[in-house]
Design a protein around this nucleic acid. Structure first.
Lengths: 140, 140
DNA sequence: TATTGTTATACTCTATAACTATA
DNA sequence: TATAGTTATAGAGTATAACAATA
């Protein structure tokens, strides 16, 4: 249960930071995924952010209304739609980054650098394995 | 971001298992917290599960309607209410446990026992530190 | 026919403020 | 006055199925 419980404590930290800027955790994942990209297809974005497509539609609609993202058509394939950040969104990401870094700094203060790196490595390995397994055998 | 991203993969595993039994992650946390206890006060339960009281009211109402928990008054203090599992709920917990263990087994298969223990220890330490810090300095 | 994305629908949780009743 | 819990509200994400447009 440790992962689930700890997650709750960590996520609440992030939610506090993000909600001050009117963002949810999912919206932040989308901002981060799009940051530094010319534009991503919605289905690719959904996969990277681990958000289902119907949820994605709603989340992107809210973000678009708020002027954070823009949809634009893909000339090569009329079905697919790409999304990219507006300048407003890029500025917002830069504004929030330091605060998010603050949360990580708190974590590092608690664990120390060596253990934080250990934790990070373990999580990466676990994530890779879970995705791999998920692809192979479907959801557990 | 590793913790947030990995969390998503892990949580989706659990959600898959739990939703087959019509449970949410929060309801599972409550079931686990109450399992093996005579009864817990709602505010204590909320703290342990990291769920806000107003959310708790709704979640408990749904669980009570489904016959999983029962509220009963505290004679010593007319304001506080205790909650405990019904036999149905206890049977359900026993039924689900092996499946949840299956998810942990998958994690152990990915990381190996030694690394899993490492991960567990790091998370425990992080959680304790976050709670400590949260109590001391407020959110973030 | 298969794929990309949206719509429809119903449910659950989050979060804040206001309120009730006990203490 | 303070505490335990509920109610009222509004908003947001999850999940499944059905659908439209394009390939």
């Amino acid at each position: 249960m440790a992962l689930l419980r700890t997650r709750e404590a960590v996520v609440q930290r992030f939610r506090t930071v993000l909600s001050r800027h009117g963002l949810t955790e999912q919206q932040w994942r989308i901002l981060r995924a799009l940051d530094g990209h010319e534009g991503l297809e919605i289905s690719l974005l959904a996969e990277q952010c681990r958000i289902l497509l119907p949820s994605m539609t709603g989340i992107l609609r809210r973000m678009e209304q708020r002027g954070l993202v823009r949809r634009y058509a893909n000339q090569a394939d009329g079905r697919s739609i790409r999304v990219r950040l507006t300048e407003t969104a890029q500025a917002l990401v830069e504004e929030i980054k330091p605060e998010v870094v603050g949360v990580y700094a708190e974590i590092e203060r608690i664990l120390g650098q060596r253990k934080l790196e250990q934790l990070y490595a373990l999580l990466e390995e676990l994530e890779a394995g879970l995705l791999e397994g998920g692809r192979r055998s479907g959801a557990v």
